[in-house]
């Protein structure tokens, strides 16, 4: 077993440091691409006539629009690891407001936590990244907490 912690002082200094904000201008075309890619034909994501008659009064984005590279999740944070292999461990999202075409979403990520565990193949590092997504009015539309595993 490896001795000592794999979490260095340099890594600890990055806790809570905010990455560069990412701006996502939400377009209908992007929403449609997303819905097609995940195979979700819900007209609320695509059909303006249909969506007008709903509580939203127009097209909204599916929940999958946030928490990915395009939405800036994890952008600009200094993720360090002594390992070469990495996998996504999980995600946790809270949704507060719908995201609509025309919205300008600014996301900011930071490293919230490190955990180390002993796995079958030795030590594993869990890095938890928190991201806040705000719209053009400064309202928080969603937050996410993503776990990355390196080993």
């Amino acid at each position: 077993m490896q001795q000592g912690s794999i979490i260095t002082d340099e890594m600890k200094e990055q806790l809570g440091v905010e990455g560069t904000p990412t701006i996502l201008e939400v377009e209908k075309g992007h929403i449609r691409m997303m819905a097609e890619a995940l195979g979700d034909p819900n007209p609320l994501w695509q059909d303006e006539e249909y969506a007008k008659k709903t509580r939203y009064g127009g097209i909204i984005a599916p929940p999958a629009l946030l928490c990915n590279a395009r939405a800036g999740t994890g952008r600009g944070v200094q993720m360090k690891s002594p390992f070469l292999r990495a996998l996504a461990g999980g995600d946790e999202l809270e949704y507060y407001l719908p995201v609509r075409p025309g919205d300008v979403i600014t996301s900011v990520s930071k490293i919230a936590e490190y955990n180390e565990r002993e796995g079958r193949r030795g030590k594993m590092l869990f890095t938890i990244i928190e991201t806040t997504y705000k719209n053009q009015r400064g309202e928080v539309v969603a937050t996410s907490r993503s776990t990355y595993i390196s080993y």
């Binding site: 890619a37 995940l38 929940p63 999958a64 995600d91």
Partner: peptide, 13 residues
């Protein structure tokens, strides 16, 4: 993983 999360979003919506 995020695609499977997107599927779960589809399931729920």
């Amino acid at each position: 993983g995020a695609l499977k999360r997107a599927w779960l979003g589809h399931l729920m919506t």
